[in-house]
Design a binder for these strands. Structure first.
Lengths: 335, 335
DNA sequence: TTGTAGGCGTTATCAG
DNA sequence: CTGATAACGCCTACAA
């Protein structure tokens, strides 16, 4: 039925033939309608409208190595965190006539390498990454591509190029210190799927508890986070640490799972168990008590990232390469 | 700093030059290593490895109108529903050496049109859509592209080409009938963001309540669904319908929001308020009572969709064009 | 205002 | 087994 190569985007030539002009005229019209005679203008417009002509990007990719597209590399499609982030990016790219190509790698470094190669093979003009650790090969590919790159969400010590993020370690340190100051003695860190943000939060947690002479407690799983994983992690933790009175969670899915499980066990939050999550998702505001969570300006991070890429592409590259967009602690009462 | 056209993916020629052979040899090696002399093979392999050479897809897109990529068009990145669906697709495409290009359109028909054009401009070899209503222009673009297309998730009456989905209307009808048979008298339909699935479920609901002589009650919002929207919709519904004893929700986010709000008001689920959601997300299993929800085989739908596309591309096109993959009712106790 | 020629990187094809 | 050539569609640069 379909020949393997029956993908027949009709070329510009077809449009031209049908009105009896050369394709150059049509090509010119597309970029600047005023550059062709007024009489032809209408005919071209009608024909293009009628046939829903779509530009073929391949020639531009070939002759200018530019696709007018920005590649976005997300760890996962299921993580709500990246929704607003992506919207922020697209808000900017759309305004500048750039497309976005989204790839995801399910938190696998190898898959990430593959996806970077894939995006580069489509000649993306810029790349927005959401992690700061990369394989050697990934780094080399990105470097030889010579395109502007933003590492978003974190503040890498040695950025590839540009970076927009926030201080996850510092945020964790601050909130843990607050928990300890409120009288909590045995706070555990709950983490899943060890991505780099999870590790930074863990470091902040560790530094904060050790600064006050406590021993860190880690309750970790390799599985992806979910509400039910949160519940089972609490189960597991309570068996081992009977005096557990605080939980700092790498994200809100786990925190909410813990809160639900705690409440079903009759454990009072925050009196008996103080609880802090990360990302401030909508579900946390529905809980009672409302979940306290470290919130990040994801939409703004997306926008800033896209702006940096576009500026770099249009020559308005600025001196500052790393931007710290800060965080806030959501108004909850689980701490 | 970056010239607008400084995207320098080094070409095959560079690799060849560095070992002193012609690019044709390298090109052949890439497709079939055994087609070049054994002695050269190693040298090429090493050089490609060392320089992390990346194929440029533009030429293939140009001369064969094929990008070895399948386009996936998702309504939204935040909807958990499409995570497993996409994984199902990629399970298959990866095995066959196809890439995926993901685009999303935030439930906007116009944005969808733009994204379809964008994907086609990248010469995707196939297209997987997740909605069944399209603008005229979208349809025309897809038709003239002449590539295999799957409409996934639903069972359109007039499919563009192929379709893989389930009977949302029938599922709704069945579960509503069950609710009515359990003695409920005033069941409302809760919907947000009127996408096509929401409408199908609404039709099933309407037919079922009318079949038993009741009047349908719709509690709708144009906003995107979320837990907190669910809560405020319940608030709104209770004011108007004081005898409300059942809620059928277009998705679990709303259902969970309703359950939480109900419990905070002291309304017993399911005794006073029977509750059914859609999609069977993880959070529902955490609630008590566990949320009853209509579940769909999203992973399998993704896999089947990708298989159909790949079969069509390789000539193994099959007669059957529409596949109903069914649904199940999750084991909850909120009904 | 309009038309023509060449080039981008890869591979199919044909010749050696 | 290897090499030369042409072709894909569009746009830049130049010519008329």
């Amino acid at each position: 039925m379909y020949e393997c190569s029956t993908n027949i985007q009709p070329p510009l030539q077809d449009v031209a033939d049908r009105i009896g002009i050369t394709k150059m005229k049509v090509s010119r019209y597309l970029r600047d309608p005023s550059s062709v005679a007024a009489s032809t203008r209408d005919k071209i417009a009608k024909e293009i409208e009628a046939t829903s002509y779509i530009q073929n990007r391949a020639p531009a990719m070939l002759s200018k190595s530019s696709s007018k597209a920005i590649g976005i590399l997300l760890p996962s499609l299921s993580n709500q965190v990246f929704t607003r982030f992506t919207q922020g990016i697209e808000e900017i790219t759309r305004a500048h006539g750039f497309e976005t190509l989204i790839a995801h790698f399910d938190y696998s470094e190898i898959e990430k390498e593959t996806k970077v190669a894939s995006l580069l093979s489509y000649q993306v003009d810029g790349l927005i990454l959401t992690e700061t650790s990369h394989t050697k090969r990934t780094l080399q590919m990105i470097r030889t591509a010579g395109i502007p790159v933003v590492e978003a969400m974190e503040l890498p010590l040695a950025p590839i190029d540009m970076a927009v993020g926030l201080d996850h370690l510092g945020a964790a340190y601050k909130v843990i210190t607050q928990m300890l100051n409120s009288g909590k003695k045995q706070i555990a860190y709950f983490g899943a799927r060890l991505d780099s943000r999870t590790k930074l939060r863990m470091q902040g947690y560790t530094q904060a508890v050790e600064a006050q002479g406590h021993k860190p407690i880690y309750v970790l799983t390799e599985e992806h986070s979910s509400f039910s994983i949160g519940a089972s992690l609490l189960e597991q933790a309570l068996k081992q640490y009977t005096n557990l009175d605080g939980a700092f969670c790498t994200n809100d899915d786990i925190a909410v799972g813990i809160m639900m499980a705690a409440q079903q066990k009759g454990i009072e939050v925050p009196k008996q168990l103080s609880l802090v999550g990360n990302n401030a998702l909508d579900i946390g505001t529905m809980m009672s008590p409302a979940l306290t969570s470290i919130d990040s300006p994801r939409y703004e991070i997306g926008k800033k990232s896209a702006e940096l890429i576009i500026n770099a592409l249009t020559g308005d590259s600025c001196e500052q390469k790393v931007f710290n967009l800060g965080y806030s602690i959501s108004a909850g009462s689980s701490l």
